[in-house]
């Protein structure tokens, strides 16, 4: 029987990961109503930036060799860069398009990035060992917790706090909140649209990079499909949290993490492979009960 403390740490670290991915999606949705399906591919891209491009089965570290102090800012920068580039190349030209067209375009962009990665790195998952010492367990409150889980929880809290500070205290943050509230009105009042949108994409990309680093350290595997699953969960968290609500995305990320850990522990052994099916069914039920999400931002209410 798994004990409660163990369960708590599992849930909090998985939820933290989901929350960070969901924040990346919610940030962009809030500013330009774009459901960014390419977000999962940003994560995969950052993972693969760590290793030397080749289709061999054994991964050779490339950026991953750098010490953590250099590596972390570098990977965050790469994440921000690919997100900003994709805005510049694709989404900038679709600003006037309707949200469905933008969503389909981001789906296409994700498909392109994924297939470029497949062509360059090959389809087989590769073993990477990034900071293996972080997976050593630590005794804490009667549970043995990998150090990484504690780092994930701490990182999530720091990221959320930093983002909250950025949004509340800086000019860029103020403009982003204004843009998320009502983009047209904000522009009329002098909010710099391009700065805000580029900023949102850069932040979102950096969040994707953080998720990538954590996932690689945790699983030790680089796989092109890594982004798909977490992206889906992140979307769902964004929708359940109330589209465009940042606190909602964080809360829903933690909620989904907790529910999936609980399901894993509570389901009978036979049903465990179907855990995700139960999770997504709960999601649909949740959407049916509260179609606008758990936390509805004022801007989401239709004005008719």
């Amino acid at each position: 029987m798994t004990n409660l403390a163990q369960l708590f740490f599992d849930a909090a670290s998985l939820g933290g990961l989901y929350a960070m991915a969901a924040l990346g999606i919610a940030l962009i949705f809030g500013v330009m109503n774009l459901v960014n399906f390419a977000h999962g591919e940003y994560i995969a891209f950052c993972v693969f930036a760590l290793i030397v491009p080749s289709t061999d089965a054994v991964a050779v570290m490339f950026l991953g060799k750098a010490p953590a102090l250099i590596l972390i800012p570098l990977v965050l920068g790469i994440g921000a860069l690919i997100a900003v580039l994709s805005e510049y190349a694709v989404f900038r030209h679709l600003r006037r398009a309707d949200p469905v067209a933008m969503m389909v375009a981001s789906f296409a962009l994700g498909f392109v990035i994924r297939n470029i990665l497949l062509a360059v790195y090959g389809g087989r998952p590769k073993a990477i060992s990034l900071w293996p010492e972080l997976n050593t367990p630590v005794e804490l409150a009667g549970a043995s917790v990998p150090l990484l889980q504690l780092i994930v929880i701490a990182t999530t809290l720091i990221v959320v706090a930093a983002l909250a500070l950025l949004l509340r205290k800086t000019r860029l943050g103020l403009e982003m909140r204004a843009a998320a509230e009502n983009f047209t009105m904000a522009r009329l009042l002098g909010v710099r649209a391009n700065v805000v949108i580029t900023g949102a994409f850069a932040l979102s990309g950096a969040l994707a990079a953080a998720v990538a680093l954590i996932m690689v350290t945790q699983s030790g595997v680089a796989d092109v499909r890594v982004g798909g699953q977490i992206m889906l969960v992140a979307f769902i968290a964004t929708v359940i949290g109330g589209m465009g609500s940042l606190p909602g995305a964080v809360a829903a990320g933690f909620l989904i993490g907790a529910v999936s850990v609980l399901l894993q522990a509570a389901l009978p052994l036979d049903a465990r492979p179907f855990r995700d099916a139960f999770l997504y069914t709960l999601v649909i039920v949740c959407l049916l009960l509260r179609p606008q999400g758990l936390f509805v931002p004022a801007s989401a209410k239709p004005r008719i």
Binding site: V35, I236, M243, F274, D276, Y280, I284, L287, P291, Q292
Partner: peptide, 29 residues
Amino acid sequence: AAILRLTGIAAAIATFAFLAIVNTVYSNW
């Protein structure tokens, strides 16, 4: 009957969740 009670983006995401459900079930049964 369930998904179409939603509209707009929530409906699109729910169809995605449906796809993931079918895929999970068929890849594990």
